[in-house]
């Protein structure tokens, strides 16, 4: 779809340039006569093509309904979109914006929310136990 949009955009831009050029030439040579119909039609057609191309090649829109939008985040999870920072970390798509509340793991869950209250001692103990048990799963 993105390819089709680019083709439409290119063709539209070419027609638009041509129409503008023709208008310029026409007014330069016959200053007092009205613009011929074909130039007007070409101009309108090129704008139509360009608008269509822009709409088609645009990134997919986000759902308007809250439930659908949130559901999309829950279903798909966070995934990379091919952009990386200088350190080599991938920039991920939008995630659960309420993850900072840390209420996703249930009561006494071990999530990473609530960074202000991050329990460094507990996390260290968990890691040490994992290492001592042989580092399984």
């Amino acid at each position: 779809m993105a390819f089709f949009g680019t083709v439409l955009n290119t063709v539209g831009a070419l027609f638009l340039t041509h129409a503008v050029y023709s208008t310029h030439e026409h007014t330069a040579t016959f200053a007092s006569t009205p613009l011929p119909l074909d130039i007007t039609i070409e101009m309108l057609a090129s704008i139509l093509l360009l608008s269509l191309g822009i709409v088609i090649s645009f990134a997919p829109l986000k759902p308007i309904q809250h439930a659908e939008w949130a559901g999309q985040i829950s279903r798909g999870g966070r995934h990379g979109e091919g952009q990386y920072t200088r350190e080599g970390e991938e920039v991920l798509s939008e995630g659960d914006q309420y993850a900072f509340l840390g209420l996703d793991g249930g009561i006494g869950g071990k999530g990473e929310g609530r960074r202000g209250f991050w329990d460094v001692k507990g996390k260290r103990r968990e890691y040490e136990e994992w290492v001592r048990s042989g580092g399984k799963n």
């Binding site: 966070r78 920072t85 350190e87 970390e89 991938e90 920039v91 991920l92 995630g95 659960d96 993850a99 996703d104 793991g105 071990k110 999530g111 990473e112 929310g113 968990e126 890691y127 994992w130 290492v131 580092g135 799963n137």
Partner: peptide
Amino acid sequence: NLLSPPSQISPQ
């Protein structure tokens, strides 16, 4: 991922 770490970080 260090930029946006997962919501649950296992020891692994």
